[in-house]
Design a protein around this nucleic acid. Structure first.
Length: 247
DNA sequence: ACCTATGTTGATAC
DNA sequence: GGTATCAACATAGG
């Protein structure tokens, strides 16, 4: 259930297999490996080694020694598993290395991606490291609801539904506010809170573990003021917020 | 049994 | 162009 924190964890997993020669690739899932035909990714990667594991927002990629780049995305339910029990049904993309080790994109939902030479032109700067000026410019514009703007990976990347709700709650900002109407001070505050919430989530191992956001259910009380939270669809996603704290 | 859901992409409509 | 909505993917959980 990945957002930026889970993607960072996956990136760290990929680092473990850097430098190992790729001897086999399972790229038979034509949906996950689209637009490639079966065997295309295998032909491009076999004989090469991954040399660097990189991430922007939720998008992952690995560089190789004189070979193409390998792009990976976890979708809604994917994870990177190193040397795990092979799973025929849910291992959607697999690399096997000369030393016998194995890296799988394990994804029950099949919404993950694996592809060669991914194009990230449309992906905005990473939410965890975006500068103050760039954040002001890219987030504080347009008539879209603030929450929808945060979820738009072209504006900034890495924020998913839960991290967006948690961040707006901490920042005491209403998810329906038109993004372009925020003041500079509000945008700066939002950026600080977003970075802090992201760091917290990475430290806790992800936004879905434990109690990252407690009030995300119908009728729940706001942890700050006990007001019953509101629920609505904003930016196409279920949104919870406190009408008292986030006016 | 029915409804909802963590994400992205691409099509379509205003 | 900016914004909004929906379908597609496959499974789990309430």
């Amino acid at each position: 259930m990945p957002e930026l924190p889970e993607a960072e964890r996956a990136r760290a997993q990929i680092e473990k297999v850097l430098g190992r020669e790729i001897v086999a690739v399972d790229d038979r899932d034509t949906y996950v490996c689209r637009p490639h035909a079966p065997g295309e990714i295998a032909d491009a990667l076999i004989g090469h080694r991954l040399t660097k594991a990189l991430r922007r927002g939720k998008f992952l990629w690995a560089e190789t020694d004189d070979g193409p780049e390998l792009g990976l995305h976890l979708g809604m339910a994917g994870k990177i598993v190193i040397d795990g029990e092979p799973h025929e049904r849910w291992d959607r993309f697999v690399l096997e290395f000369a030393d016998g080790s194995r890296m799988a994109l394990h994804d029950r939902r099949r919404l993950g991606r694996a592809l060669i030479n991914p194009d990230f032109d449309h992906v905005g700067p990473d939410a965890a490291i975006v500068s103050r000026d760039v954040f002001r410019e890219r987030v504080g514009r347009g008539s879209m609801p603030l929450k929808a703007r945060l979820l738009d990976q072209r504006s900034i990347s890495g924020v998913g539904n839960l991290l967006a709700d948690e961040t707006l709650w901490r920042a005491k900002l209403n998810p329906r506010r038109p993004a372009g109407e925020l003041t500079t001070d509000e945008l700066d505050h939002l950026r600080r809170v977003l970075r802090a919430a992201t760091r917290d989530a990475i430290r806790k191992g992800g936004v879905h573990t434990g109690d990252f956001i407690k009030h995300r259910k119908r009728g729940a009380p706001c942890p700050r003021c006990a007001t019953t939270v509101e629920r609505a669809t904003i930016g196409g996603r279920t949104t919870f917020w406190c009408p008292n704290c986030q006016p």
